[in-house]
Lab assay of single mutants.
Amino acid sequence: GSLMYASIFGNVSAIIQRLYSGTARYHTQMLRVREFIRFHQIPNPLRQRLEEYFQHAWSYTNGIDMNAVLKGFPECLQADICLHLNRSLLQHCKPFRGATKGCLRALAMKFKTTHAPPGDTLVHAGDLLTALYFISRGSIEILRGDVVVAILGKNDIFGEPLNLYARPGKSNGDVRALTYCDLHKIHRDDLLEVLDMYPEFSDHFWSSLEITFNLRDTNMIPGSPGSTELEGGFSRQRKRKLSFRRRTDKDTEQPGEVSALGPGRAGAGPSSRGRPGGPWGESPSSGPSSPESSEDEGPGRSSSPLRLVPFSSPRPPGEPPGGEPLMEDCEKSSDTCNPLSGAFSGVSNIFSFWGDSRGRQYQELPRCPAPTPSLLNIPLSSPGRRPRGDVESRLDALQRQLNRLETRLSADMATVLQLLQRQMTLVPPAYSAVTTPGPGPTSTSPLLPVSPLPTLTLDSLSQVSQFMACEELPPGAPELPQEGPTRRLSLPGQLGALTSQPLHRHGSDPGS
């Protein structure tokens, strides 16, 4: 009898404990919600809404976190579960008819179910419309201010047509639940991603989709105040780019002037030289400038040598048109050559190039014969006009050509200096018209024969001689050997007369 009593008592207590286990969990969670309300000092109306929603959600799901349970299964099984949970929507909604099984599984994985109690606001006026909503159960109302403009029910759709707008718009009203509602919502990016994977279904979906109420604000059109608020930074940046392009296009129409201050000032006329910023005076940081632009901040801005204009002085008759350009485009679109090309026009420029290279940067340069637009006047290309890779490749080509020119210049200078040193070592320090008596009659020769300089066969020296023939050397430049009979510069000019005159010897006659 005691054994029977113990078994009955144990079973009854276990049954009672299981009955009250759900209630215990409910009270535990309710205590957490109330502690949250007390800690954050939530006001009474919002506090009442929180408690009511918790009670309804507990009775609806029995305190089970559906998302946590669903995430515990593998992905393939999750797709089947989501397809079952959203079967009513996918079967009865017209846009989803005719979709393949794979497309429906992908869509079912992207849908999220939302449960809303009465009085809950789903979308506020001015919120971004980031999702498309399908009503599965219940009814909602749409308000503009305090005026109800629409009441939607089961199988209705609200949001915005995503295929017509590249960016999400703003809501033009509040969406509030009238009863307990079940909503299926899919985010904008998720829907577009699935439709991109199934393009054959995309056309059918957009053609058959009928949005019951379009929440997009109709005033959000390009150029409206609301649109400016939504895309303020983007609009200002776009206007700045367009104004920069218009100014650079105007600059290219004036090829007669070359400016070292950047493309923003290349198009300024002579009357605007004294102004601080020219056409860019209202925004000094709008356009890029070269490193020399920092010198323009000092006094005497109108007389600054940074602004270059072609000189009108005539060229000498024998002067060549100019050196070879550094870039391939210089032959086609440049009416002034790079300062480095002028360094190779003569030997005198070679000796004085490194010492006063900055001073020569603004000297007169030889002109190319074609009066085409200036290379320095070409505006900086924006990322939309020329690819970045093209600019980098041009810079690399320019750097390689500069290296080759520097190597060639160093070799030419070394060769010229070597020839000058050899000339100085071969010439005796001094010569006299009267020579010392020699031991015999073989001493009648006034000077030792001097062998002429070897013929220069280097390509670089031939180019130097060509430049010497075309360029007029300055007075202080050293002379180079030329073709024809060679003669030492330090010898007297009348050596031929010395050989014809008898030598005057000093000596005593033994017979006297």
Rank of each mutant, 00 (worst) to 15 (best):
127 D>K: 03
128 L>A: 06
128 L>V: 06
132 L>W: 01
133 Y>M: 04
133 Y>K: 01
134 F>A: 02
135 I>T: 01
135 I>W: 01
135 I>Q: 01
136 S>G: 10
137 R>P: 03
137 R>N: 13
139 S>C: 10
139 S>A: 06
140 I>V: 10
142 I>D: 01
142 I>A: 02
143 L>T: 13
144 R>T: 07
144 R>W: 05
145 G>D: 14
146 D>N: 12
148 V>S: 05
148 V>Q: 07
149 V>P: 01
149 V>K: 03
151 I>V: 12
152 L>E: 01
153 G>Y: 11
154 K>Q: 14
155 N>G: 08
156 D>F: 01
158 F>T: 01
160 E>R: 02
160 E>P: 02
161 P>Y: 14
162 L>H: 12
163 N>I: 03
163 N>R: 07
163 N>A: 07
166 A>P: 11
167 R>E: 10
168 P>T: 10
168 P>H: 03
169 G>N: 03
170 K>N: 09
170 K>M: 08
170 K>F: 10
171 S>L: 03
172 N>E: 05
173 G>P: 02
175 V>W: 01
175 V>Y: 03
176 R>A: 03
176 R>V: 11
178 L>P: 01
178 L>G: 06
180 Y>G: 07
180 Y>N: 08
180 Y>L: 05
180 Y>M: 05
182 D>H: 14
183 L>T: 04
185 K>W: 14
186 I>E: 03
186 I>A: 02
186 I>C: 03
187 H>W: 01
187 H>V: 09
187 H>L: 12
188 R>M: 10
188 R>C: 08
192 L>E: 10
193 E>R: 07
194 V>F: 03
195 L>W: 03
196 D>Y: 08
196 D>S: 10
198 Y>D: 02
200 E>T: 06
201 F>W: 13
201 F>L: 06
202 S>D: 07
205 F>M: 03
206 W>A: 04
207 S>F: 08
207 S>N: 15
208 S>Y: 07
209 L>V: 09
209 L>E: 02
212 T>H: 03
212 T>C: 05
214 N>T: 03
215 L>Y: 01
216 R>I: 03
216 R>H: 13
218 T>D: 13
218 T>R: 11
219 N>I: 12
219 N>T: 10
219 N>E: 13
220 M>Q: 11
221 I>E: 12
223 G>S: 11
225 P>Y: 08
227 S>K: 08
227 S>I: 09
228 T>M: 07
228 T>A: 09
231 E>D: 13
231 E>H: 11
232 G>P: 09
232 G>R: 09
232 G>K: 09
233 G>H: 12
235 S>N: 09
235 S>Y: 12
238 R>D: 11
240 R>P: 06
240 R>K: 10
241 K>C: 10
242 L>M: 08
244 F>G: 11
244 F>E: 14
244 F>I: 15
247 R>P: 08
248 T>D: 07
249 D>H: 12
254 Q>D: 10
256 G>Y: 09
256 G>R: 08
256 G>H: 13
257 E>Q: 09
260 A>Y: 12
260 A>G: 11
263 P>K: 14
264 G>T: 11
265 R>Y: 11
269 G>Y: 15
270 P>D: 15
270 P>T: 11
271 S>W: 07
272 S>Y: 09
273 R>N: 14
285 S>V: 11
285 S>L: 11
288 P>V: 10
289 S>I: 15
291 P>D: 09
293 S>N: 13
293 S>K: 04
293 S>P: 13
295 E>C: 11
296 D>A: 12
297 E>C: 03
297 E>R: 06
298 G>H: 06
299 P>C: 09
302 S>M: 11
302 S>I: 08
302 S>W: 10
303 S>T: 07
305 P>F: 06
305 P>E: 15
307 R>W: 03
307 R>T: 12
308 L>I: 04
310 P>R: 10
310 P>W: 02
311 F>V: 12
311 F>N: 14
311 F>M: 06
312 S>C: 10
312 S>Q: 13
313 S>T: 07
314 P>F: 11
314 P>L: 15
315 R>E: 12
316 P>T: 13
316 P>Q: 09
320 P>T: 11
321 P>V: 14
321 P>S: 11
324 E>Q: 07
325 P>E: 13
325 P>W: 11
326 L>R: 10
326 L>C: 07
326 L>V: 03
327 M>C: 06
328 E>Y: 01
329 D>M: 06
329 D>P: 11
329 D>W: 02
329 D>N: 08
331 E>G: 09
333 S>C: 15
333 S>M: 09
333 S>A: 10
334 S>M: 12
335 D>N: 05
336 T>F: 11
336 T>P: 12
337 C>A: 13
337 C>K: 15
338 N>H: 14
338 N>D: 13
339 P>K: 15
340 L>M: 10
341 S>D: 13
341 S>K: 07
341 S>W: 11
345 S>A: 08
346 G>D: 11
346 G>Q: 15
348 S>I: 03
352 S>T: 14
352 S>F: 01
353 F>E: 07
355 G>F: 04
356 D>I: 07
356 D>Q: 09
358 R>N: 15
358 R>P: 09
359 G>T: 10
361 Q>Y: 13
361 Q>N: 06
362 Y>P: 05
362 Y>A: 10
363 Q>Y: 07
363 Q>T: 13
364 E>P: 09
365 L>N: 13
367 R>D: 09
367 R>A: 13
368 C>A: 08
368 C>W: 09
368 C>E: 12
371 P>T: 09
371 P>N: 12
372 T>E: 09
372 T>S: 10
374 S>P: 08
374 S>H: 04
374 S>G: 11
374 S>V: 08
376 L>I: 08
376 L>P: 13
376 L>Q: 05
376 L>A: 03
377 N>C: 13
379 P>R: 06
379 P>C: 05
379 P>V: 03
380 L>Q: 15
385 R>P: 13
385 R>Q: 10
386 R>H: 15
386 R>E: 09
387 P>T: 08
388 R>K: 11
388 R>N: 04
391 V>I: 15
391 V>R: 09
392 E>I: 03
392 E>V: 13
392 E>Q: 03
392 E>P: 09
393 S>W: 15
394 R>C: 06
395 L>W: 15
396 D>V: 10
396 D>A: 10
400 R>A: 06
401 Q>S: 12
401 Q>T: 05
402 L>Y: 04
403 N>E: 04
403 N>D: 01
403 N>W: 12
404 R>W: 05
404 R>F: 03
406 E>Q: 08
407 T>P: 04
407 T>G: 07
408 R>S: 08
410 S>V: 09
411 A>I: 08
411 A>G: 07
411 A>L: 13
412 D>W: 03
413 M>C: 04
417 L>T: 05
418 Q>D: 06
419 L>Y: 09
422 R>Q: 12
423 Q>G: 07
424 M>S: 12
425 T>C: 08
427 V>D: 05
427 V>G: 12
428 P>V: 06
428 P>K: 08
428 P>D: 13
428 P>M: 06
430 A>M: 10
431 Y>P: 04
432 S>T: 11
433 A>I: 09
435 T>K: 13
435 T>D: 09
435 T>R: 10
436 T>A: 12
436 T>Y: 11
436 T>Q: 09
438 G>K: 11
440 G>C: 05
440 G>V: 13
440 G>S: 08
440 G>H: 15
443 S>T: 12
443 S>F: 08
443 S>N: 13
444 T>S: 10
446 P>C: 06
448 L>Q: 11
449 P>I: 05
451 S>G: 12
452 P>Y: 12
454 P>A: 10
455 T>I: 07
455 T>K: 13
456 L>T: 13
458 L>V: 12
459 D>T: 12
459 D>P: 07
459 D>W: 04
461 L>P: 10
462 S>Q: 11
462 S>F: 10
463 Q>T: 10
463 Q>A: 10
464 V>Y: 04
465 S>K: 08
465 S>C: 08
465 S>M: 07
466 Q>R: 12
466 Q>A: 08
468 M>P: 14
468 M>W: 15
470 C>D: 12
470 C>P: 08
471 E>K: 04
472 E>V: 12
474 P>E: 09
474 P>I: 06
474 P>K: 07
475 P>I: 12
475 P>N: 08
475 P>C: 06
477 A>M: 15
477 A>G: 10
478 P>I: 06
479 E>C: 09
479 E>I: 01
480 L>D: 12
481 P>W: 12
481 P>C: 10
481 P>I: 10
482 Q>T: 10
485 P>D: 10
491 L>P: 03
492 P>N: 08
492 P>L: 04
493 G>N: 08
493 G>H: 11
494 Q>I: 11
494 Q>M: 04
495 L>A: 08
495 L>T: 11
499 T>G: 07
499 T>L: 05
502 P>K: 12
503 L>Q: 05
505 R>E: 12
505 R>S: 11
505 R>L: 13
510 P>R: 10
510 P>K: 09
510 P>M: 06
510 P>L: 09
511 G>Y: 06
